[in-house]
Simulated assay, not measured.
Amino acid sequence: MDWNRVEGNWKQMTGKVKEQWGKLTDDDLTQINGNREQLEGKIQERYGKAKDETSRDVDDWYGRQTW
């Protein structure tokens, strides 16, 4: 996977991220700024999920994006 696409289009992607993970705040998204590790960390924090489960969720979400 090429996460660089997400990083490069982060401002456009934030709406899609919020659709999937509505507990993330605008401040969270600003802080994450496209960084996958930070995104996964915030999802874990907000949703209380395990690291491997969160990683799979992000992979699934990324795979459903249309470019």
Rank of each mutant, 00 (worst) to 15 (best):
D60V: 11
E19R: 03
Q20L: 08
E53K: 15
A50D: 04
K51L: 08
D2P: 12
L39G: 03
K51Y: 08
Q44Y: 09
D59V: 09
N35I: 08
Y62C: 04
L29R: 01
R36F: 00
T66E: 10
R36L: 00
R64E: 13
V58G: 04
W10V: 03
T25A: 09
K11M: 10
E40F: 00
Q12K: 15
E53S: 12
D27H: 05
L24A: 11
N4L: 10
G48Q: 14
R56I: 04
L24R: 00
T25W: 02
T54A: 15
W10F: 03
D28M: 07
N4W: 08
T25I: 03
W67L: 07
S55M: 09
Q44K: 13
G41Y: 02
R36Y: 01
G22T: 05
V6C: 09
E53R: 15
T66Q: 09
E53F: 12
E7V: 09
T30N: 12
K42A: 15
R5E: 05
D27I: 04
V58Y: 01
Q44V: 13
E53A: 15
M1H: 06
K23F: 04
D59L: 09
I43T: 02
Y62M: 10
G41C: 09
T25G: 09
M13S: 05
T66D: 07
E45D: 13
Q65S: 11
K51S: 11
K18P: 00
T54F: 01
E7R: 13
E19L: 04
V58P: 00
V17Q: 03
L29I: 07
L24K: 02
D27K: 08
D26L: 08
K11Y: 09
G22E: 07
N35V: 11
K51W: 04
E7G: 05
W21S: 06
Q38N: 11
I32C: 11
T66M: 05
G41K: 10
G22L: 01
R64H: 12
G15S: 14
Q44W: 02
M1Q: 07
E45S: 12
Q38M: 10
V58A: 04
A50V: 06
T14L: 01
